[in-house]
Amino acid sequence: MEDFFIRHYNEFISSGITLAIVFVLKFLTNKMIKKVGSISDLNVARTRLVSKYFSFGFTALTIVAFTLIWGVNVKELGLILSSVFAVIGVALFAQWSILSNVTAGIILFFSFPFKIGDRIKIMDKEIESSGTYIIEDIRAYHIHLRRENGELLTYPNNLMLQKAVCVIAEEGFENEGSDAV
């Protein structure tokens, strides 16, 4: 048993360093996401969702790093990865809209052009009645918009990036530049 640890000393050290780096990166990323969420006054559930996405990404990178550190045969690894990516590619092609909505949700989180409670108007010809909506919830795939008459519209995140969206100011809002004569 001691011989095993001596033979793989470098792999154990590299694995430990990799784990330490990943934990530090996860910690810093989570702090940054929480800070962006609190500064932007975003929903806590939305902040947690973006944190989970980044955590999943770090976990995948850690698995790849361990595979390389422990010296898996590259030819065998290439065969396995090409098969896995072929299956994932077909699945993502079939589900491209889900992936684009999740990506748009992350972009909306970091760009925060609007937040829950904002009154907006969407410039989309395909919506039957164009009116104002109040953003009720922003989820991973879609946004819940409530009309003034109480109807709930579920609108995909990717369309929020593709269509023009006007944020309507509160009635008591005055333009700072309007004092000029």
Rank of each mutant, 00 (worst) to 15 (best):
G57F: 01
F58M: 12
F58T: 11
F58R: 13
T59N: 02
T59F: 15
T59M: 04
T59W: 12
A60H: 07
A60C: 13
A60Y: 15
A60T: 08
L61V: 14
L61S: 09
T62I: 08
T62M: 14
I63G: 10
I63S: 12
A65E: 08
A65G: 10
A65N: 15
T67N: 03
T67L: 02
L68Y: 04
I69D: 00
I69Q: 02
I69E: 00
G71Y: 09
G71E: 13
G71L: 13
V72W: 12
N73V: 03
N73G: 12
V74Y: 10
K75P: 05
K75E: 09
E76T: 08
E76F: 07
L77F: 01
L79N: 13
I80V: 12
L81S: 11
V84H: 08
V84S: 11
F85T: 00
A86W: 00
I88Q: 02
G89F: 01
V90R: 07
A91D: 01
A91P: 00
A91Y: 05
L92Y: 02
L92N: 10
F93D: 03
F93I: 00
A94H: 03
Q95E: 10
Q95T: 13
Q95G: 15
W96F: 00
W96C: 09
S97R: 05
L99T: 13
S100E: 05
S100M: 08
S100G: 04
N101Q: 10
N101E: 10
V102H: 04
V102G: 07
T103F: 06
A104T: 03
G105R: 02
G105I: 05
I107L: 08
I107E: 10
F110W: 06
P113I: 05
K115I: 03
I116V: 12
I116E: 14
G117V: 12
D118G: 12
R119C: 07
I120W: 00
K121T: 07
K121R: 07
K121I: 06
I122M: 05
D124T: 09
K125P: 13
E128D: 07
S129Y: 10
S130H: 01
G131F: 14
I134E: 02
I138S: 11
R139L: 09
R139S: 11
Y141I: 09
H142K: 11
R147E: 04
E148A: 15
N149D: 13
G150V: 03
G150T: 02
E151Y: 00
T154Q: 09
P156Q: 03
N158V: 07
N158L: 08
L161F: 10
Q162S: 08
K163M: 04
K163V: 04
A164R: 15
A164S: 10
